[in-house]
Simulated scan of single mutants.
Amino acid sequence: MMHQLYPQVFHDYCYELNKDMHIAAAHFIPHQLAGKCAHIHGHTYVVNITVAGDALDETGFLVNFQKLKQLVHGKLDHTLLNDHQDWFDSKNSEHFPTTEIVARKIYEVVQDYLDALPHKPKCLQVFVRETPTSYVVYRPKAGDR
Rank of each mutant, 00 (worst) to 15 (best):
M2A: 15
C37R: 02
L81C: 03
Q125S: 14
D57M: 04
S134C: 10
Q4V: 11
D144I: 04
A38E: 02
E130T: 06
G143K: 12
S134L: 10
K67M: 08
T133C: 02
H43Q: 10
M21V: 10
L117D: 11
G143C: 08
I49K: 03
Q4A: 14
K67C: 14
N82Y: 13
H119N: 07
I23F: 13
H27R: 12
G60V: 00
I106P: 04
H84E: 05
Q111N: 04
R145L: 12
P97H: 08
L33V: 00
K91T: 14
V102E: 09
P132Y: 04
P97I: 03
A24L: 05
I106A: 06
R139C: 07
L33C: 10
P118F: 15
V46W: 11
D83Q: 14
A103Y: 04
A52W: 00
K36H: 10
I101S: 09
E16I: 09
A26C: 13
A103G: 07
K122F: 14
A25N: 11
L33Q: 06
V110Q: 00
D12I: 03
W87I: 03
K69Q: 13
V9P: 02
T50G: 00
Y6P: 03
L68D: 12
P118T: 10
Y45P: 03
H31E: 02
H3M: 15
K69F: 11
Q111K: 02
P118H: 11
D86R: 08
P121I: 12
G42S: 06
L68R: 01
C123Y: 07
L33T: 12
P118K: 13
A38F: 00
L76I: 11
N64Y: 06
T99M: 07
W87E: 05
G143L: 03
E94N: 10
V109I: 05
V137K: 02
V63I: 10
N92E: 06
K75E: 14
V46T: 10
F61C: 08
K105F: 08
H78L: 15
H43F: 13
N82W: 09
S90D: 03
A26I: 11
F65N: 03
I101C: 09
D112P: 02
L33F: 05
Q4E: 06
G60P: 03
V51N: 03
G60W: 01
Y13A: 09
D20E: 13
V126H: 02
R145F: 06
G60R: 03
E130P: 04
